[in-house]
Nucleic acid binder design. Sequence first.
DNA 1: ATCAGTATGATTGTATACAATTATACCAGG
DNA 2: CCTGGTATAATTGTATACAATCATACTGAT
Lengths: 235, 235
Amino acid sequence: MSDYDIRKTVNDKYSLRGRVFQKIREDILSGKYKEHEELKEVAIGEELGVSRTPVREAFRQLELEGLIQIIPNKGAYVTGITAKDVKDIYMIRSLLEGLCARMATEKMTEEQLEEMEENIYLAEFHAGKGHMDQMAELDNRFHDILYEACDSKMLEHLLRDFHQYVLRVRQKTLSTNTRGRASNNEHRQIMEAIKAKDAKKAEQLANQHMINAYDNIVKNGLFEIYGEENGQERG
Amino acid sequence: MSDYDIRKTVNDKYSLRGRVFQKIREDILSGKYKEHEELKEVAIGEELGVSRTPVREAFRQLELEGLIQIIPNKGAYVTGITAKDVKDIYMIRSLLEGLCARMATEKMTEEQLEEMEENIYLAEFHAGKGHMDQMAELDNRFHDILYEACDSKMLEHLLRDFHQYVLRVRQKTLSTNTRGRASNNEHRQIMEAIKAKDAKKAEQLANQHMINAYDNIVKNGLFEIYGEENGQERG
DNA sequence: ATCAGTATGATTGTATACAATTATACCAGG
DNA sequence: CCTGGTATAATTGTATACAATCATACTGAT
């Protein structure tokens, strides 16, 4: 008992609120609702066949997830991720994925390690075939395993959030063919380091893995999906 | 325009929901509502003289803050922070405060630097007098300045959350007389490094600052406030 | 006495009604 | 044509009513 997860209930798929929450999040991340677009309670309620109440509660959650901004008495607006946000997130993730890999080195179970190996093997196959959807899915899963393995619900929670947050960027990134394979090779190196119980190396590799991912984003100029006016603001 | 903050509206003190949110959070952090205690919508609503609606919305936010856990159709329960959580948070904060200090070295304004110097000067005074409340307040403010100065709303947001989260521990920590002064000296060193534009040193010092803070917590066995059954769980 | 089953009460989930606030459109005056 | 103000509509904020779910206590049979 008591192995509950702080935010399992958010994924509660069987309450209206939970479904509304997931649906809106999906629609924001997929780009259906665009940056600065206003979300209206009744409209979304009608679309999903529910009243305003569950929609409002979902809004409050989405706000804390950082996906929308609620201006009191005015409305809910989809928040844009600026280029600077993405950069910051990758800098933060670089450190935290490193920490996660270090911690995972001590805590990882045999089953987790095996799933990782399988994951990398499969990804190699799909990389060859150019199956980008599967690559994205496997990349998700690789990092999930790492998050679970670090045995820290705080860190796991945090990294999962960021992972979600940059979803739009990430999917584009992996679809630049060469990066998919390079990324998987980095996964392999991280896995090897963990297998060899070399925590320091695992940390350093995971660190670099994020830096490489970000560099790739910059190099390929993938920021256009975040609109034009973004980037550095003050300063 | 458009210098909005993702979660400014949460601090919206002028809506019922905002006030309820802040009140409950305060009551949890101050220890009024204890770990695993059940929060009932009507009871809290009556206490604050509002209906269930704003209370429910506040609950949804508190859940995402990680302060309560909502079990569908059952209730809302105050989540405990385990000793392991505290440890994890300090490990994470160590890295992120370091990153923050590094970034702040480039971005800090003259005004911010001056407020920091004043802060440290004042803290020295209060440390001598044993004014623990003021020390806690100044410590809060020191870190806030740093968070603002890093010029990253993502990082600022994150660090503020963690800062809040370990509030209970922190206040106890600073009241162990010697740590208050030592902590302030570390603040001074960080400030000096930033002043000298030595980003690497600032990072390393902020890093160590967190490790020292955590060591102090462990050394003084300040975990009892989180109840008995806590600590490492699986593993 | 113990257990199953049911009935009752308490609590949360959702919908709707009403109040407050904000946006929009229209009109009068310059 | 532009400006300011007022009326109206649209939208959010809050309260309340009703439905669904869960906890508890009681009853009756074994």
